[in-house]
Design a protein around this nucleic acid. Sequence first.
DNA 1: TCAGACCAAGTGGTCTGACCACAGCTTTTC
DNA 2: GAAAAGCTGTGGTCAGACCACTTGGTCTGA
Lengths: 245, 245
Amino acid sequence: MAEPETRAWKIVLDSIESRLLSGELGPGDHLPPERALASELGVGRSSVREALRVLEVFGLIRTQTGSGPQSGAIIIASPSSAIGALMRMQVAARGFQVADIVRTRLLLETAVVRDLAERSDAIDLADAAKLLDAMEAPQLTPEEFLALDAQFHLSLAEASENQVVATMMTGLRSSIEGYVLEGAAGLPDWDATADRLRAEHRTILMAIIAGDRDAATLHTNNHISGYYAETHLTTAHHNESHDHG
Amino acid sequence: MAEPETRAWKIVLDSIESRLLSGELGPGDHLPPERALASELGVGRSSVREALRVLEVFGLIRTQTGSGPQSGAIIIASPSSAIGALMRMQVAARGFQVADIVRTRLLLETAVVRDLAERSDAIDLADAAKLLDAMEAPQLTPEEFLALDAQFHLSLAEASENQVVATMMTGLRSSIEGYVLEGAAGLPDWDATADRLRAEHRTILMAIIAGDRDAATLHTNNHISGYYAETHLTTAHHNESHDHG
DNA sequence: TCAGACCAAGTGGTCTGACCACAGCTTTTC
DNA sequence: GAAAAGCTGTGGTCAGACCACTTGGTCTGA
């Protein structure tokens, strides 16, 4: 059964994954040089490189030319950009719809906020509060404001101390970043929208701190779906935002 | 600013992504042959191949040797295995903790079930019901049972008609599949556990159909966290499940 | 005429060898 | 002793070659 995945790059990938699982390799460790890995596994260097490319876009390694301790392929674990890239590409290939991305963000964020509200005494919301203060700064461009906005929501996910959720939120957000910016540019009165968003953020944070689960959930729901509805992101098909405009 | 990402494979990746976004390429279409792509973009074939490898593990293309309409690289959009592989590797590299994966699954599934219960009149749960019947079959191995179990939960996500959530659920599940199977093997009385899981599934499904949001949420919560607690998956570190047993 | 065998072409899959740019280390030189 | 030069090892890339495989056409023979 199941010939051993004759493809050479898969051999390399499996080998490295098993080394990770066995603990032989861990964060900060160096992978063997490409040439060594190739001869060691009996494959060509190009096959090794294809596997390393996969590891790189998965956010598992960082490569550096040159010599010395910082060179070579080093194990890291930065899944955020990988998830973002994956989702962005899936959106591009029509595997994911923007509306589903938005709905998923709504789902996740609502659940996070509910969770935070339910144990509001044991969480640290200082980062979130700081970001809200930063968003009060006048003359923020929509781009800057939305970046802070994203960080605020990310800080909530991080407050729930769940790296997976935080990563997913980041990935979801970045996968539709382009569409979000497009939508902001099309708003009739950005300042008014920004003021409303600020107020909603405060409301959400206060509800969390107060431990008012239902209020936090409700306000989050309204906040997110309201914004996306305002920017028509939930109804527009992603193709239409480019040429038929 | 921002040198154009001198790396050749990135050029190829960006080129293909922009073709997807512009609509020049879509699901079912063929990518140009590797050699043509290489000369067209002014890069070597190996660089093209590195980019195609990324697209392949992202679930965006399927490659096939030979000639004819089925050969070459064809655009698909199957994100499930990609997300699963990505998360599995992140777990292996200690970027994600198994406990966080479990908690995220709990979060997502609870939200899905709550959503389904709130609009129980407009959803189709036939698939889920069928799977529950299939799980009644006697003499299912733990592996078979858990596969049906996963499909049941997946069918709930699919009933919510959100491809992104369904994909995430699949990815989350597959990323810890190995640990789940390990945990099942360590149960003292598998038949009793299976019976309990069956009953809980029925309870959840009925609560959804009845539109009882709170009951559906509660039962889902208990169902999932109960199982993972029973298999010690929420507390065990993934390293410890291999050698120190 | 038709069926089967055969062959040609085009594809991805892989390997090899070569060269480059770069970063760190070593040696030389002043 | 310090600065400069060279050496070494790394990833990044390219070019060419060969293989396995699939398809579609062509040839052969009944």
